[in-house]
Design a protein around this nucleic acid. Structure first.
Lengths: 201, 201
DNA sequence: GTCTATAGGTTGATAGAC
DNA sequence: GTCTATCAACCTATAGAC
């Protein structure tokens, strides 16, 4: 249950974020959300116009700060950042959230191929892909633009999979306690080597 | 529309596979499926007992041959397979399907964190993860079991992302025609380097 | 095996009182 | 801004005729 201390609009956003992440966008009804938020059903259509608008608002609230932080870290890395600096700037702002409610939501967004969610994703991620694409290309001038895109695509996929399957990682790795620092470090090591790898199959 | 040449049960499976992949499990109603298959609504509950059973059947029909092929290729690689051989044995049976209807369905399965689908996934993938985990560990004895699992996890995520975002790859890579041979080759190169990478962040 | 008909329940959205 | 009440549409599943 979402505490009553905050206002109705925020309670709806909090409840929707939690349930969208947990059960998906289609499987979560507005009634589920208003019950979780302890607000009236009609409040959703008053504060947001429709379920799609609500989905948009829920996603934007979390994605925008992450993307802002990514661009900040990209800029802070200077004129000629290392590959590892670029990977951390791209991955860390999302992967630092640890076990918060943000994880399942972002995993849903990344893993939902539906046109509406994909449209939102493109809108939010267009600039990021462009900027980081340039930066990766500059750091690794020996690769074509297409190869750089492939490598970014694989890295994003690995990250998305860590988020979306975070809950089953402890099961896959019995002797380790799962934490995001470790996941990030392992992923940066893995992706950096993958980025530098030359074709030779 | 699914041609009338095949029997009702197969037509339902074909239609369900197509629509589940395209719109997701929750968003696809039995009515959508029976309309696409040109069969009566009640036929679904006659041939399969419930929607969940149908989902199970749709997934099993595609996953089982892929997993069988994986184990065949693993065995065919002999006693001491190279890392590249292992990666190809794991990735190729799924990635060779090219633009068929199988892609979106498998992408859905891999990207749906819901308990029911995850349960199916575990049931179908348990043996594969175990066998390949052993093989990767044997090929790279300098890493701990947990590190091997991380690397497998990243590789699976990259593959899943290629499948689930296959339709937007041409857009990301304007100057290349997307094909699965290229995707597989790029992914094997990327993942092989990632597998061999030592911690050093 | 295939059909019609329908039960019984859910959904998103809105109208209108307060 | 918040509520109750309700609409029209949709859903899964089943009963029973053919």
């Amino acid at each position: 249950m979402i505490p009553k201390a905050v206002d109705t609009k925020t309670r709806i956003l909090d409840a929707a974020e939690k349930l969208f992440g947990k059960n998906g966008f289609d499987a979560t009804s507005l009634r589920d959300i208003t019950a979780e938020a302890s607000v009236n059903l009609a409040a959703v259509n008053y504060h947001f116009q429709s379920k799609d608008s609500l989905i948009d608002a829920v996603i934007a609230r979390r994605v925008e700060p992450v993307n802002q932080r990514r661009l900040e870290m990209l800029e802070a890395a200077g004129e000629n950042p290392t590959l590892e600096q670029l990977l951390i700037a791209f991955l860390q702002p999302l992967m630092q959230h640890d076990f918060s409610v943000v994880y399942p939501l972002m995993a849903r967004v990344l893993a939902t191929p539906d046109t509406f969610v994909t449209h939102l994703l493109k809108r939010h991620l267009g600039l990021i892909i462009e900027r980081f694409g340039e930066a990766f290309g500059k750091a690794l001038p020996e690769f074509t633009e297409t190869q750089i895109r492939w490598k970014m695509h694989f890295t994003a996929g690995a990250m998305a999979h860590v988020l979306s399957r975070a809950y089953m990682l402890p099961e896959l790795m019995p002797d380790t306690k799962f934490d995001c620092q470790t996941a990030l470090a392992e992923l940066v090591t893995f992706a950096a080597a993958g980025f530098r790898a030359k074709e030779g199959i």
